[in-house]
Simulated scan of single mutants.
Amino acid sequence: MPLLDAQGILRADEPDVVEVFNPKGRSEFVLVCDHASNRIPIGLKQLGLTSAELQGHIAWDLGAAQVARKLAVHLDATLVLSGYSRLVIDCNRPLVSPQSITPVSDGVVVQGNVGLTEAERAQRRDLFFEPYHQVIRQILDARSSQTTQLLSIHSFSPALAQEGADTLRPWHVGMSFKEKPTLADHLYQALHKNEQLCVGYHEPYAIDEEFDYTLIEHALKRQLEHAMVEIRQDQLMTESQTSQWAERLFEALQ
């Protein structure tokens, strides 16, 4: 049996913690997908969750990676994807956030995240969080002499599990930004022309320093045009649906 790494979490034969898709992409867009995977390292024993729970939205952004890959092909853009579940450590949360390694997600207790020591939290940071963001830094550093726009692809659940509350979300898609509105405004205006779509502006989420990391760290600090795109997950259940959304976003970016 392959040995675990020195920190006792990852086996040598497990997938990489970060994937770069189309690394020689020529587009001015760079894409990121923070919640691309629901994979849990073997050494973390599914974090105490069932396989069904790991298929749900608490573990990843369903359909986001498929849309991001297809959009990267349409644009000829470089795409960076996280290799493991947001429940291991959330690559789009500041390390000081209570949601960085959350013990409860949408009402589900994540037993493998309960009562972690600072050393255990640091292990996950060093193995999963830092490598992902270091790859993004390296890609952006290499493009410092050319125009770059950073686009983050996410998906969101149609409703949240809050007993007695109406948490249905009407938006088919939403976009948000922090201080640099040009790209998000362009997307909003283009998608809003489709009368069949309910398009959110800073919905279902606004970018916030307390709960968001990727675009603040990599776009705002570099003063790059950027946008976070959120697509409702019930529209990303099939191959044709993810293809449709990739084409829709590609057309909106023109």
Rank of each mutant, 00 (worst) to 15 (best):
Y132W: 09
F129K: 06
E230W: 11
Q189R: 13
Q111E: 11
T147Q: 14
D126T: 08
V20H: 09
P103C: 15
K45F: 12
S82N: 08
P181F: 12
A227R: 00
N92Y: 12
R11L: 08
P131I: 07
Q134C: 12
L249S: 04
A161V: 02
Y201R: 04
G174D: 08
A165P: 01
H226D: 01
I42V: 15
R137P: 12
L253C: 10
R121K: 15
L151K: 11
G112W: 11
V173S: 01
I136K: 06
Q149A: 13
R143A: 07
V199N: 02
E209D: 08
G8L: 06
V199W: 00
L95F: 11
I40F: 04
T167G: 06
R69E: 07
A59S: 05
D234F: 02
T102C: 11
E225M: 03
Q196A: 09
E195Y: 07
E209R: 10
P23C: 05
H226E: 01
S82K: 04
Q241F: 05
P23K: 14
S37C: 14
R248C: 00
E53R: 07
L197E: 01
T78W: 06
F129V: 05
A184N: 02
F250N: 13
V135T: 15
L224M: 14
L191P: 05
L236A: 05
H154G: 02
L150G: 00
P103W: 07
H74F: 08
I40R: 03
Y201A: 15
Q235K: 09
C198M: 11
H226V: 00
A68D: 03
D90M: 11
V17G: 05
G8K: 01
K178N: 10
S243K: 05
A119I: 12
I89Q: 06
A6K: 15
D16S: 13
C198A: 12
D234H: 02
G107E: 13
C198S: 04
D34S: 10
E14R: 12
A159S: 07
N194H: 09
H226W: 07
A119M: 07
H133C: 12
L44H: 01
I101C: 04
R248Y: 03
H154P: 14
K45L: 03
V110K: 04
A122I: 04
S37Y: 02
Q111M: 06
W60E: 01
V104H: 14
R69C: 10
V67E: 04
G174W: 00
A6S: 15
C33S: 04
A77E: 03
D76L: 14
P41K: 01
I101M: 07
F21P: 01
L79F: 10
H154Q: 09
H202W: 02
I40G: 11
H35Q: 10
P204Q: 08
V17P: 01
Y213P: 11
T238I: 14
Q149M: 11
